[in-house]
Each structure stands twice: as C-alpha cells, then as structure tokens.
Design a protein around this nucleic acid. Structure first.
Lengths: 161, 161
DNA sequence: GCTTTTTACTTGTAGCGTCAAGCAATGACT
DNA sequence: AGTCATTGCTTGACGCTACAAGTAAAAAGC
C-alpha cells in the first residue's frame, strides 16, 4: 500500500488520551516536588534508585539504566545533586574509567522527608483513580509498550521480572 | 494514620512501568519528528490541531487548551512556527485582546508530509504492541487519570466525549 | 464614567535536556 | 607491545519550557 496505515477511531481516541496524560502528568509530578522539596521528578527518581541500591551506591551507567536516562543527562544531574550534598562521586576501584555515585546521609534524609508527599501526589493524580483491575491492565499494557521502547530490556529488574 | 499510604506491590510495579514509559516515549516521538521533519512533538501536535480546526484557525487560548499547554509556552511555539512560515497570526476582529493562529498552505503541506511517518512511529512504538482489548483498556484508564489531572475537562472535545 | 478585576497574550530569564565532541581507560587483535 | 575500537564518563553550547512580570483590552462594580 502506498498509504500509511492510519489509526482506527478507537486507536486514535485512545492515543489522544494517552498523549494528553503524557503531556500533563510530568508537570504535576514536577511541580509538587519542586514546590515541596526543590527537586525535579527526575532528581527524585535518581535519589530514590540510589536509596534502594546496595550500599546506596551505583555506577553511573547502572544508574542511567535504572532511570532511563542518557549518561550525559545523568552526569549533569549528579553534578547538581553533588553540589547540594545529596550525592557523592567516588572513582570506582575495579575500573578506573567508572564512577560510583552514592547517596550521602543528607541525601538519604532528603528521600525520607520527600517520599510521603510524592506518594500522596502519585495517589491523587493516578493510582487512586484506578481500581485493582485497572492497575493490572495498566501494568500489562505498559509492559507491552516497554518491550517496544526498550527492546534491550535494560529495565528488566524493575519492569519485566 | 501518621504513615503515608504506601503503594501496594502491584500498584508500585505498575507505577514504575508507567513512569518508565513516560520517560522514554517522548524521546522516541521527538527524535523521529526532529530527524524527519525538524519538528518537536509538541510543534507537530500544534500544527495537527490547527489542521483539524475549521478554517484551520484557532484562537491562542483555544489552541493552548487543545494542546494542554500554557499560553506562554504556546506563544513561544507559535512564534517559532510563524518564523518558519507554517503559521500566521492575525488579530481577532471580535475581541481585540485575542489572536488567531492559522495554518498557512506551507504549514498544511508540512502536516501532510509529516503525518505518515509520525503515525508509523506511533504504531511501531505503541499501538501495534496492543490488541483491541488493550486499546480499550488504555482508553478507559487514561480517561480516569485525565479526570484527575484535568478536572475542568478542557479536553472534553477530544478526550471525554 | 471611573476605577478595579479579569482575560488574552507576550516577553525575558533562568534552568534542564540533548547533541556533539572530547578524554581517559580498557579490551581485542595481531 | 602496539594499534584500534569500545566503554565510561564529562563538558559546552544550544534549544525548549516554566515562571514571573508586563501590556493591553474588555468586563464588572459603584
């Protein structure tokens, strides 16, 4: 066929709603965190991932996979978080090209203080709008989309287990 | 309770997958459009909305609602699109505070050229991963989330009809 | 009719992300 | 052991978005 395969009306309707959420939700998450903790959603995510890691430490590459970010982006972000005392960078002994990022005590406290408000926002804006079946459906659907977006499955530890 | 209501494991798993998609998908859409048409996803959306409007014209406020953008953001974007000849701004005769943005012929051609590649990307990265039931579920779930994110229902013409 | 408020939009600035380029260490290959 | 490619990360410049402040017109109040 020389025409593209357009979307069906159902697909189109669903897609438009989906990108509306994609457009609106980041703003909601960012502004709550910015207001209450002076953190970007991505900065919070970074701190949260570190807080869950063994020794609260991860190599830059591992952290960038865990947060779906490019190394360049992560490098800028960690630089900012380091300036504020939440994260410390130390050279990795096994591989001298590599850098370990670890959460400081101050950074840990920041996560502890910030998490409840963030979870409340996640509930308010998303989770509490959904029943158990919705949550299961969302999980299934996002899993299918992720397999297209992230064919190498860098996220398998969180997303595909 | 003085503890926040944490997420259940199912909710948490679903949420993490969801924000992974939220983090990855905009990059995929943006880079295809940037590469093939030198447009942002948001710029494309703006042109697409105009192309569907009567006379291919909308007032700035209406267009900002249709695209989920602040007026400030839209103003910058329209300024860029105007410089490139895709959009023209004309003062609105009925209300001299208002501005009409309309798609030029060049802008219309741009949409016509760009749409097929964009739809193909949408299919590749999302829609073709989903069966009919998934699409219906996604539609339902995003509708529920939108009702939280957009309580005033500015999007009703597209999202809630 | 004159102020006050609201609506519609624009503009400047500051901050974050992407891209391209770079460097240094490592591994592979000969 | 010497070259070449790859990996791990950093840096700088540029572009887009959010935020704050400003202008101008219209509507509302008195």
């Amino acid at each position: 066929m020389n025409h593209p395969r357009w979307l069906t009306p159902e697909q189109r309707h669903s897609w438009i709603r989906f990108i509306s959420v994609l457009e609106l939700l980041p703003g909601v998450l960012d502004s709550q965190l910015q207001h209450d903790a002076e953190l970007t959603h991505f900065e919070y995510l970074t701190l949260a991932r570190l807080s869950e890691a063994p020794e609260r430490t991860l190599r830059m590459t591992a952290l960038s996979s865990a947060t779906n970010a490019s190394l360049a982006r992560l490098s800028h972000v960690i630089a900012r978080l380091e300036k504020r005392g939440f994260v410390a960078r130390t050279p990795c002994p096994e591989d001298r090209r590599a850098t370990n990022a670890s959460l400081t005590e101050v950074g840990w406290q920041k996560v502890v203080e910030t998490a409840p408000g963030h979870v409340a926002t996640v509930r308010d804006s998303v989770i509490d709008a959904l029943d158990a079946a919705d949550v299961a459906d969302l999980d299934r659907i996002m899993g299918r989309i992720l397999s297209r977006l992230d064919p190498t499955n860098r996220l398998r530890s969180w997303g595909t287990e």
